[in-house]
Nucleic acid binder design. Structure first.
Lengths: 354, 354
DNA sequence: GCAGATCGGTAAAACGATTTACCGATGCCG
DNA sequence: CGGCATCGGTAAATCGTTTTACCGATCTGC
């Protein structure tokens, strides 16, 4: 029942919520007990009766700890940063969705940042990276993502993880099997009978781009095919469209495009040049996106576990916060999978090169 | 066990960054001066010489304030929450991108949350909404977003803003001119000569869905056309595909689809029924997305200022934090704009209804 | 020479939780 | 009855800033 002798202060302050000390006062114990009880301190010895009373008061007052105060005391905020180059790129937003889910499940929140802005090392950098606003940072380097920026961040000792990337050394990373992706894509074209297979490559970031090129080369070598033309495909539909113009007409009957957005552009570009897909040119892209089946023709892709990549990145970063060494993982479960749709077909009878 | 080998107070602690008191000590002033100087306190009178010295020390120590401590003291964290139903929906991620940009420009960070999870009023709700983790919350209600959840959040007195929605009363909102969108879309079809114009509507949320229906009705009325069939289109490609099955064959030669993803699905669905787009059926959607020009046929849409919506939402929420009354805005600049591509054409000679 | 102003700061109390060290009663054992 | 565990907690020091109130000198005017 309500305390008869309550001369001072309202039980629950008019403005603002109940705080720890309110619960303590109301339950007639010290704040320490409330904190230790609510946090499940093993070393706390407490009478069952007291425990119930404290819990009841906390519930009645709808006590919720002030996360900011906790964070200050514990020097741990329960927030992970996620720096993305382009939020509206469906590949990135898929990773983001996975990360959000995993973080949330682990009791963490996700703070969104712009990777480019971060790299400029200005106010955003100061506040986010050096201001104790986050416990760790996941960074998805975009096309222009420099090593210098990464070093800059790493030097602050903020736990850092490169997502969808591959590193060695002190900065950890969680990536995808990029080589397998282009390998599968290229092999698919080879199996269809293509002998002139181009690669529209990423350009940047270097590590990922190199792996994709390797996969393409390996598949060509295994099939005993010559290396087809290689042009820069980039990351956007515009890049892909431009890339098609750079591809010498007739130099290839199939193209492996290292990025799905570029592939979308490449299809438009091909059409603009009077090439029919897949009749004159087969196109296969890396990464599946929800609208790929609705393109015309539906786009053949290698599906990569993007959502899983997001999840695993968070898990890895969390382990790193726990003291583990920076991870160098490749998410290979589920495996990259070829999804055959209608943008690939056997090469035309009259081969491209005549 | 205390460390006997550790002499007192290193100038800059080995672990962790320089703090305010370090700067103060090093510069030979009190912490108050440093804080007030760095925060630009007008009332602070200080000798030029001292000012320079403090600034120099702060720079030398690379002092960055601990945002958590600031937040605690000021009861203001500098973080806005953004709760989204589906991160990987390109419409939402476009809004998100705008919000991120504006927040960042205003010196705020954006915390991402899952709207559905939030609505479940569990741990996430407690920590985010009642834990002082954010200064205000933007909520994009998804298909299942209930009023109860909104009321729940509003009752906590956390500044709340509904994004891409329309409200009256105590909960503010920033929305789009949904009626204009479907009006323009419908008028376009009418001008092409269509007389049987269907509406694949949203279903939920109610307010937005109703406005879209109104726009369609108004355009039909103005053109002196009868009301065509209306079926639930939903928000996903799958929904749109299903919706096409629900549309009686021949009952319409044109369809206004209230959501671009549903429109993508509708095109596939139409094809599955042997309908050619636009020869047999014209389709126009609300919202432009980057891949719309690359669909086949390229999708005619009404472009809405999604990114601007994100920006304006942040600006509105910030004003609300500043004490303004909850806004009820409609972002109408730039205006909804019809982007004619190839999914719309005059109706077939032999009218659908024949 | 003395009452104010003005200058150039300082002291100290918040903000709300966590955590370490310790403490006064009981109970138990010999 | 003395010693010492064990029980059931408590006190108080942080965490790093911000901000209000105030203070001792030095001028200034008369």
């Amino acid at each position: 029942m309500p305390d008869p002798c309550q001369p001072v202060g309202p039980a629950r302050p008019a403005r603002g919520r109940a705080k720890l000390s309110d619960v303590a006062r109301e339950a007639g114990v010290s704040p320490a007990v409330v904190s230790r009880l609510l946090r499940g301190d093993e070393k706390l010895r407490i009478r069952e009766e007291t425990r119930q009373r404290v819990l009841a008061v906390a519930a009645e007052l709808r006590y919720t700890p002030n996360e900011v105060a906790r964070a200050l005391r514990r020097s741990e905020v329960g927030i992970l940063g996620m720096a993305v180059h382009d939020t509206s790129n469906p590949v990135y937003s898929e990773i983001l969705a996975g990360a959000q889910a995993e973080a949330s499940a682990a009791g963490y929140a996700l703070l969104l940042a712009d990777a480019d802005e971060l790299a400029r090392t200005g106010r955003t950098f100061e506040r986010l990276v050096r201001g104790n606003r986050i416990d760790g940072l996941m960074l998805q380097r975009g096309p222009g993502g420099s090593d210098a920026a990464v070093a800059q961040i790493a030097s602050t000792r903020l736990p850092l993880l490169l997502v969808n990337d591959r590193t060695r050394g002190e900065v950890g990373s969680v990536g995808l099997d990029d080589e397998a992706a282009t390998y599968l894509a290229t092999r698919h074209l080879a199996e269809l009978g293509h002998t002139a297979i181009a690669h529209l490559h990423l350009g940047t970031p270097k590590a990922r781009s190199a792996a994709r090129t390797r996969g393409w080369r390996r598949a060509l070598a295994e099939a005993g095919l010559p290396e087809g033309p290689q042009v820069r495909g980039g990351h956007t539909t515009g890049d892909g469209e431009r890339a098609m113009r750079g591809l010498e007409p007739g130099s290839a009957t199939g193209a492996v495009v290292s990025n799905v957005l570029a592939a979308v552009g490449a299809m438009s570009g091909a059409r603009a040049q009077g090439l029919r897909v897949p009749d004159d040119l087969s196109i296969v892209a890396v990464h599946d996106v929800f609208f790929a089946p609705h393109l015309t023709p539906p786009l053949t892709v290698v599906r990569m576990p993007l959502r899983e990549l997001g999840r695993r990145s968070v898990a890895a970063l969390l382990r790193q916060l726990g003291g583990d060494r920076p991870p160098h993982e490749v998410v290979s479960e589920p495996e990259p999978e070829l999804v055959v749709r209608a943008s690939t077909a056997p090469p035309p009878r009259r081969p491209g090169r005549a």
